[in-house]
Write a protein that binds this DNA or RNA. Structure first.
Length: 331
DNA sequence: CGAGATGATTAGAT
DNA sequence: ATCTAATCATCTCG
């Protein structure tokens, strides 16, 4: 009953079922069966019942094989017994010898049965990985869900860590599970941080949208919208982290514990995030400052990311970054 | 078909 | 327990 060797990593495929006299590939059998039922379906319950059908199929194969081996064992034993009996006419054969013979045979067959067991185990594992590994049936979220998630993300950019409640609400709105929401935010944070340039357009879009929605729109707000895509964002490979928030440094980091429980703070922060955007878009014009970095990595400090927070001091004071890279945006 | 996008899983850190 | 970072497996688009 020991789990034998669980294939620790997928994609390895080294299985190599016992060659030779052993029970040949139950596992391969099952894998083939699983592969045969590919495609189309994708109905959750249907798939699950499919999985169970395959499982019972494996079980049945296992039992019939087991029975077969047992029978073969018995037959072989009697055969050997007969031989011995015949030989006992020409030479004396002690009962001990017979017993030894029988036990040898049984040992052999039981080892074969162990192999059978192991193969079955592998088969189940393959089946499992094929049907139960969620990665294998990944579906993209629908457009609306991603919109909702993105909206939340970009309107909380300075602290994109939705609370449990927020997650539940998002999950409900998007018709996905809470852990899917968590996954999404985890992936988003990482990927955003990793390549902010790639997400600038998106960030601008959602920021503008939420601005229009939330800020009650003092009419005529539509313009200012993206003077063509700012291709300057550069960052080919080395992320030099042009952290120059400059304009809006002031509001930057009030993240951390300050509004842990206070929803008010969060709301305010959200508004600030949005407004900062609007400012960044329109404000660029008034000065000579080119608008080429409409959305700066505000919430992200140079060394790491959002999460470390709790750096007690040093926040709220625009003391430039550690490296003071300060890429000058003038031309 | 290949590259990039994307959701899920995992190891390790806190 | 939750997050990050890396990675996997699949989807999507050209």
């Amino acid at each position: 009953m020991n789990p034998a060797s669980f294939p620790p990593k997928h994609g390895s495929v080294p299985i190599t079922l016992s060659g030779g006299a052993g029970p040949e590939g139950i596992a391969q059998h099952a894998a083939a069966a699983a592969a045969a039922s590919g495609g189309a379906g994708a109905d959750n319950s249907a798939e699950h019942s499919d999985y169970r059908a395959k499982l019972s199929q494996i079980r049945q194969i296992y039992h019939t094989e087991l029975e077969k081996y047992e029978q073969a064992c018995n037959e072989f034993t009697t055969h050997v017994m007969n031989l011995l009996r015949e030989q006992s006419r020409t030479r004396p054969i002690s009962p001990k010898e017979i017993e030894r013979m029988v036990s040898i045979i049984h040992r052999k067959f039981s080892s074969i049965q162990m192999q059978l067991k192991q193969s079955t185990c592998e088969a189940v594992m393959i089946l499992r990985s094929r049907f139960l590994d969620a990665r294998r049936k990944r579906r993209n979220f629908n457009k609306q869900a991603t919109e909702i998630l993105n909206e939340y993300f970009y309107s909380h950019l300075s602290n994109p860590y939705p609370s449990e409640e927020a997650k539940e609400e998002l999950a409900k709105k998007c018709s996905i599970t809470v852990s899917q929401v968590s996954n999404w935010f985890g992936n988003k944070r990482i990927r955003y941080k990793k390549n902010i340039g790639k997400f600038q357009e998106e960030a601008n879009m959602y920021a503008a949208r939420t601005a229009v929605n939330a800020a009650s729109v003092s009419a005529h707000g539509s313009q200012a919208n993206s003077p063509s895509t700012p291709n300057s964002a550069g960052s080919a490979g080395s992320f030099n982290m042009s952290n120059s928030g400059d304009l809006f440094m002031s509001v930057q980091s009030m993240n951390g514990d300050s509004y842990q429980g206070a929803q008010v703070g969060a709301n305010v922060q959200s508004q600030v995030d949005t407004l900062r955007h609007v400012i960044s878009q329109t404000g660029g014009y008034s000065d000579g400052l080119t608008a080429n970095q409409m959305y700066s990595p505000q919430g992200i400090n140079a060394n790491g990311g959002w999460q470390d927070a709790t750096t007690p001091s040093s926040v709220t004071s625009p003391t430039e970054g550690p490296g003071s890279v300060h890429s000058d945006t003038s031309n």
